[in-house]
Design a protein around this nucleic acid. Structure first.
Lengths: 166, 166
DNA sequence: TTGGAAAGTCAACAAGGCTGACGTAACTTC
DNA sequence: GAAGTTACGTCAGCCTTGTTGACTTTCCAA
């Protein structure tokens, strides 16, 4: 005993209580995380599934359906239902692939970009407030833990998304 | 003046790109977060909703239905469907309140505790691995950011949950 | 030319949200 | 003691978003 950096520091944060608190933090925070977009979408004919599609199409313009499938982790029937309404409503443009004509390259239309902006503004505002309140060090830790929590194949997808300006 | 943390460090982490990465990290990490319990529950007649109920009953034995409602943020009809099957299957015991007989105090039975343990072991294992990989500093940051991301009323609920051994 | 991959579609179903309406027991207030 | 409120349960019906299975069309590549 009389440890300067007590072994406590390297063990205490792994007690069951601490782990449970982390689990609960994820649960409650995720609710906050989705609250603003959900509020915007309710009333429109869209839901969280549409938001996700819009987000990742915005993120990787020209992405294919199958790529989107692997990112979102749903069945093509499920995604197709969402994508169909977005195309019908003129938010998403599905262009036949130039090289491989079986593929569809997905793009947001002007109208789609407008909704994307509205959703992402709201979500980023909350994120910005949280980041600002917590500070850069905490943010780095936040990202580190989340990354370690991902399934390995999804982690690769995540890391593959462009991260400029770091 | 003579800012110890240069303005660079305090601004760069708030770029839109950084915020978007944070949003995506939440999305992918949450999938990992729920993956193990989901795997255990598939096949049983239970789902994520049952897991949540079990978790919070374990966490606050004797809690009432209305308290659970406010934590979970669903309607009583929705919760009731879940709770009914858990009581029928002998995982949860709903005792009439001693002081106020309108209330039901909820407890896990031995069988319920067994499932709780299985689910929570799996979820804590992933959490522990992530915490261990990231280190205590990162964990502290993780918790700080998540807390800042919650809706204020939920944050109070969260903070109210016992956090021994800190 | 033929096999298989990519994409779309139809149908049916389940989990888990929701609203609205109603009933009952028990507590509280006047 | 009557009237109102609260806690809980339940019936009925609806929506979103996930699932499986079966089938078609298109079209690349061996």
């Amino acid at each position: 005993m009389a440890d300067p950096t007590p072994s406590g520091e390297s063990l205490l944060f792994l007690t069951d209580e601490q782990l449970r608190k982390g689990i609960e933090a994820m649960f409650f925070a995720y609710r906050g995380f989705t609250a603003d977009p959900d509020r915007i979408l309710e009333g429109m004919d869209y839901g969280r599934a549409h938001h996700r599609a819009i987000h990742f199409i915005h993120r990787s313009p020209g992405t294919t359906v199958s790529n989107l499938l692997s990112i979102l982790g749903v069945t093509k029937q499920s995604l197709n239902r969402v994508l169909r309404t977005l195309v019908e409503d003129g938010l998403v443009d599905a262009r036949v692939g130039r090289k491989d004509k079986r593929e569809r390259n997905l793009y947001l239309t002007a109208k789609g970009q407008e909704l994307e902006r509205e959703l992402s503004d709201a979500q980023r505002a909350r994120m910005r407030a949280a980041y600002r309140a917590a500070g850069p060090q905490a943010v780095a830790g936040f990202r580190t833990v989340l990354e370690a929590m991902m399934e390995p194949d999804l982690r690769k997808q995540y890391q593959g998304l462009k991260e400029n300006s770091v």
